[in-house]
Each structure stands twice: as structure tokens, then as C-alpha cells.
């Protein structure tokens, strides 16, 4: 007699637990769909190497030095000595998303003589984030005055790089 009562109360307890679990699972299912839109990653842009046109000797007439994102610069009416390096950048974002680089139309670099314009910025950045971290380069065209006007010395300035999805 005592033995029979104990076994029945155990059966009731087990049934209560089963109902409690079942009702929680049913409520959770109705909320699953809203989570997808919240997944986003902020883009971080970092300058790894400063753009440098190197050492340039002006000519009798005004000239340019075209610094491509990769490869050697092209001189017109100036003599290029050495030391040029394209700007090197890194962008981190979400892999597979579009990668849109926006560069300035023109900037100036200043020094001991007349300011020099840098324009026609170019980049070798891919069109999409091929991975979560993408390296790319930025080149530009330097406009140099004549030997008579462009005073020797160091000239420097800044330009902006904007990365967007």
C-alpha cells in the first residue's frame, strides 16, 4: 500500500515538467524572423603608408609627376629621382559587401615655395570586400611649377579617403 502511493506521485511530477517545456518552445518560435536585419559591421579605414612623390627636379616649364597606385611614376617636364611611394590603406568591413572608395577632386601640398596641386587621385581597391580586411593603394598627380618658381624643399599636405558599402 505504501509502495503504490509513492509510485503514483512520481508519475504526476514527470507530467508537470513535460508541459512546462512544451509551452516555452511554442512561444520562442514566433520571434525568430526579426533578427536578420540587425547584422552590420562598421568600416574602419587605416592609413598604413603616407603617399610620397619622392624627389623631383623641376624643369624649365611646369610639369607633372603621375604616381599610380602601383608601379613607377611617370614624369613630364620634371626629373624624377627616387623615393616615391603610393599611399597604402586598409579597410575592414563585411566580406562580400560592395567597397566604394571616394577620393578628393584636388588638394594642395605646401612648403617653402608656391603650393603644389595634387589631383586625379586613383586607387587599386577592389569593388567588393573580398575579405573582412582589404588592402589598397592610392596614387595621384603632382603638379610642379617651373625651376625658376618652385623653391627647393619639402612640401606636404593631406587628402581624404572615404570608404563606403
Amino acid at each position: 500500500m505504501i509502495t503504490k502511493m509513492q509510485s503514483r506521485s512520481l508519475a504526476l511530477a514527470a507530467a508537470t515538467i513535460a508541459v512546462g517545456l512544451g509551452s516555452q518552445q511554442a512561444l520562442a518560435t514566433s520571434q525568430t524572423g526579426t533578427a536578420k536585419a540587425a547584422i552590420v559591421a562598421a568600416i574602419v579605414v587605416t592609413e598604413n603608408t603616407q603617399m610620397n612623390f619622392g624627389f623631383v627636379i623641376p624643369g624649365a616649364s611646369a610639369g607633372t609627376l603621375v604616381l599610380p597606385p602601383t608601379g613607377a611614376p611617370t614624369a613630364t617636364n620634371v626629373t624624377y629621382l627616387n623615393g616615391s611611394v603610393a599611399g597604402a590603406w586598409n579597410a575592414t568591413g563585411t566580406s562580400g559587401q560592395p567597397l566604394v572608395v571616394t577620393l578628393d577632386a584636388s588638394d594642395t601640398i605646401t612648403g617653402p615655395g608656391p603650393a603644389m596641386t595634387i589631383d586625379t587621385f586613383s586607387t587599386d581597391a577592389p569593388a567588393t570586400f573580398t575579405s573582412g580586411s582589404v588592402n589598397f593603394h592610392v596614387g595621384a598627380t603632382l603638379h610642379v611649377g617651373t625651376a625658376a618658381t618652385q623653391t627647393a624643399g619639402n612640401y606636404s599636405g593631406t587628402y581624404t579617403v572615404t570608404v563606403n558599402y
Binding site: F53, T151, N154
Partner: peptide, 17 residues
Amino acid sequence: LATTERGRASATIVQGV
């Protein structure tokens, strides 16, 4: 999420060697 950074550009003018 668009991120803008300023980079530095420089050149050195030499009046011949």
C-alpha cells in the same frame, strides 16, 4: 558606416644635383 580618414601626401623639390 562610411568612414573617412585623412592621409598624408608629400614631395621634395630638388633644384638639381
